[in-house]
Design a protein around this nucleic acid. Structure first.
Length: 571
RNA sequence: CGGGGUAUGGCGCAGUCUGGUAGCGCAUCUGCUUUGGGAGCAGAGGGUCGCAGGUUCGAAUCCUGCUGCCCCGACCA
């Protein structure tokens, strides 16, 4: 491609509505343009990167034996009513009517449509297992689209759905997809982790997310340095402390703590470590209130708490009025005398002589001990893990990293097949409800995540596999030097003939502009053709990550460059 | 959905408080010079100041209503 004919409009200034670096760079590089909140046009340069991701995903899905289909983007409401999600999905589902006043929605995901296909097309266990996938624009009416294409309303997704006759078969299909995803993200050249994830309201036996590691990621993930354990923060298990609870050594007494509502305030006032204090968090229960106790230096994990018996669904904190009605004082709540269900984190049950709120304004209780001062609470894993916690597998300790969720694999079980009556005949000739798995990759989000993970002050640094162009050839002052022009043109055509994605910067721009632009749009390999080098029969090569350029003989240009392309970029 | 902010050529901004008919930088176009890290000079084009009402001799500016967009939170297979 010739740059002079390619509409790449780069800017020096950052548009003010872009907050995260991938969004800023995608706008500055002219990859995308916003049409409306959460809706973007992919310009030629951006689309090239997107297609690279898409093609790798497609190749690996095909390699894993999945079959590509293409379902409609607009889905009739009947299917959603049948699965129950027309009511459940909420306002994220964009609904519309046709001219006959029939209800439709824009597909945010396609379990219903594929299950409809399955029940019509799959008749026998002999046709199984089968895995259908598509790569298609999805629409979700997000409450708050943000970060450019990272959380857009319309986005490209690869979604796959497996069908099996048994849970064992489903697990095998799931494993195959897990392997395929690992292959995909490896080929894309990204640093990633798969982590155990919450199965949420859907249930199912297994679910893992694939995260691209980046400091700007929205999700926290915990992983062990001792083995392969890795989990989404909301799922990461905190083990009970190894050491037993010490014997009480103090009497319970009330102390004045005027205006000291926060853990930090109380700890400072009493000159005690936060770990000796206990936070009492009151939530609504099915029948009255529920209190969760976590250590002052820990935080409550609401996902864990929401799964405990007696907790209202969806989980929500009790109002100040409700707390006061139960005889406690917001800011000074404590478990002593609390009327309601009481859950304590394992680490809290291991404490002696701890401090809690006194349920009276400006007062706390010190020297509190289990059994003596209040009944033993129900033990539970309630807290978020912190760096340094032991791994729940017993091997190594946990670290916390940030990640961007780009893929999710899921064992669905029979949720949809049962609701929609998708069965096949089994060996004995009986109708048997199908077991499903579903597997998603946010293709457009992968593009943004790759930038979040790979950029510097000058711009994007594409992994080779995603780069819209692999090589940029930059002739300097070609209009003054026929030799430069000819050499660059010849090299450009040779690379094209060799199947290399090459961009020739044939614009009549000064060298500084060309360098800055090629770095901004992130082409990994750059070849400079200048009169200065040609004097000595040399060209110049520089990888986008390299500190400095290196010279090489113009005569060996093709072999040299092809050699560089074969090498993995130094991440 | 709650809170906050913002809206002026393609982009980034000033002008609004104190009303007088819109300006700067980047980008674009022309010419000349320049050419190994986002050039210089000279010239040119491009905006009914988000929309609708109102006040006024006169509104980007004051008043009322609406809308878009952004951020934080809540929410999110």
């Amino acid at each position: 491609m010739r740059w002079s004919q390619y509409p790449v409009n780069t800017t020096k200034e950052t548009p003010n509505d872009a907050e995260v670096v991938s969004h800023q760079l995608m706008l500055r590089a002219g990859m995308i343009r916003k049409l409306s909140s959460g809706m973007y046009t992919w310009m030629p340069l951006g689309l090239r990167a997107m297609r690279k991701v898409e093609n790798i995903v497609r190749e690996e899905m095909n390699r894993a034996g999945a079959l590509e289909v293409l379902m409609p983007g607009v889905i009739p409401a009947e299917l959603w009513v049948e699965s129950g999600r027309w009511e459940q999905f909420g306002p994220e589902l964009l609904r519309l009517k046709d001219r006959h006043e029939r209800d439709f929605c824009l597909g945010p995901t396609h379990e219903e449509v594929i299950t409809d296909i399955a029940r019509n097309e799959l008749k026998s266990y002999r046709q199984l297992p089968v895995n259908f996938y598509q790569i298609q624009m999805k629409f979700r009416d997000e409450r708050r689209p943000r970060f450019g294409v990272m959380r857009a309303r319309e986005f490209l997704m690869k979604d796959a759905y497996s069908f099996d006759i048994s849970p064992e078969g489903m697990a095998k299909s799931y494993d195959a997809m897990h392997k395929a995803y690992t292959a995909i993200f490896t080929r894309l050249g990204l640093r990633f982790r798969s982590v155990v994830a919450d199965t949420g309201a859907i249930g199912g036996s297994a679910s893992e997310e694939f995260h691209v590691l980046a400091d700007s990621g929205e999700d926290a993930i915990a992983f062990s340095d001792g083995d392969s354990y890795a989990a989404n923060m909301e799922m990461a298990v905190a083990l009970p402390p190894a050491s037993p609870r010490p014997a009480p050594s103090a009497a319970m007494s009330e102390v004045a703590t005027p205006a000291a509502k926060s853990i930090a305030d109380v700890a400072a006032l009493l000159k005690l470590p936060a770990a000796q204090l206990v936070k009492t968090l009151v939530y609504e229960g099915d029948d009255g209130l529920v209190a969760f106790l976590v250590r002052g230096d820990h935080e409550l994990n609401e996902v864990k708490a929401s799964k405990l018996a007696g907790v209202a669904k969806p989980i929500r904190m009790a109002s100040n009025e409700a707390i006061q009605a139960a005889g406690a004082e917001p800011g000074f709540i404590g478990p002593v005398g609390f009327k309601g269900r009481l859950y304590a984190d394992h680490s809290v049950l291991a404490l002696a002589d701890f401090v809690v709120g006194a349920n009276r304004k400006d007062a706390h209780l010190t020297g509190v001990n289990w059994g003596r001062d209040l009944p033993e609470a129900t033990a539970a894993d309630l807290r978020k893990v912190v760096p340094g916690d032991p791994s729940p597998t017993g091997k190594g300790t946990l670290s916390i990293a940030r990640g961007i969720e780009v893929g999710h694999v899921f064992q669905l079980g029979q949720k949809y097949s049962e609701a929609m009556g998708a069965t096949v005949l089994d060996v004995s000739g009986k109708a048997s409800t199908l077991y499903m798995g579903c597997y998603g990759i946010g293709v457009t989000r992968v593009v943004a995540a790759a930038i979040e993970q790979n950029h510097d002050a000058r711009g994007i640094i594409w992994p080779d596999a995603i780069a819209p162009f692999q090589v940029v050839v930059v002739p300097l002052n070609a209009n003054k030097s026929p030799r430069v022009k000819e050499t660059a043109e010849r090299l450009y055509h040779s690379l094209l003939a060799s199947g290399v994605d090459v961009l020739l910067d044939d614009r009549d721009e000064r060298p500084g502009v060309k360098f800055a632009d090629s770095e901004l749009i992130g082409i990994p390999h750059r070849v400079v053709v200048g009169d200065r080098g040609l004097e000595a029969g040399k060209l110049e090569y520089r990888h986008r990550r390299a500190e400095a350029a290196e010279e090489f003989p113009a005569a060996d240009a093709m072999a040299f460059i092809i050699g560089k392309l074969g090498r993995k970029p130094a991440n």
